[in-house]
């Protein structure tokens, strides 16, 4: 994946860390709402991290930059949440999976399919839903999370 308009490579300066920057959660979710899935990419070891963060867990380097991620990936593992937290009760059972995107970035997310339809190795695509469509009890959200979109995987 190509880097985005972030031309700088970390270590981040204090003034780089604002709610507009995708290196913070508000900036990451704003970009996601606009259709951009951004990871931190380590320029030393190529680890991709979602959400972006100021340092690489793979090698410890802070020479990280932003890289837009593909929406497609593969199911690494999956299960069904039969008794979810109360804010998700009405959605039970919830199929969830760990997905490895084609850049090797990995994230957990809901899968919009019954458990029996999912297998390890299945190809999936990440969809971005607004909080209402994602149907989480609004009481679950902290005040600053209310507008944040929710990602859901669909089987390809």
């Amino acid at each position: 994946m190509t880097d985005t308009d972030s031309t700088t490579t970390g270590p981040l300066a204090p003034e780089d860390i604002t709610a507009d920057s995708p290196f913070t959660l508000p900036g990451f979710f704003d970009a996601l709402a606009d259709g951009q899935l951004l990871a931190a990419r380590c320029t030393e070891c190529e680890t991709h991290m979602l959400p972006p963060r100021p340092a690489c867990y793979g090698c410890g380097s802070r020479a990280v930059t932003l890289a837009e991620q593909p929406r497609t990936g593969e199911v690494i593992s999956y299960t069904s949440v039969n008794r979810p937290p109360s804010a998700f009760d009405h959605l039970a059972p919830i199929t969830v999976a760990v997905v490895e995107l084609d850049t090797s970035a990995r994230l957990t997310g809901r899968v919009d399919a019954p458990l029996d339809d999912v297998s390890i190795g299945d190809r999936v695509e990440l969809q971005v839903r607004d909080p209402e469509t994602a149907d989480i009890d609004p009481d679950f959200d902290l005040s600053y999370e209310e507008e944040w979109p929710v990602h859901v995987f669909e089987l390809l």
Partner: peptide, 15 residues
């Protein structure tokens, strides 16, 4: 990303 996907302790260990 993980709490907002509705996971629980049994689900994470099931993964």
């Amino acid at each position: 990303l993980e709490q907002r996907s509705g996971i629980t302790a049994p689900a994470t260990y099931a993964l």
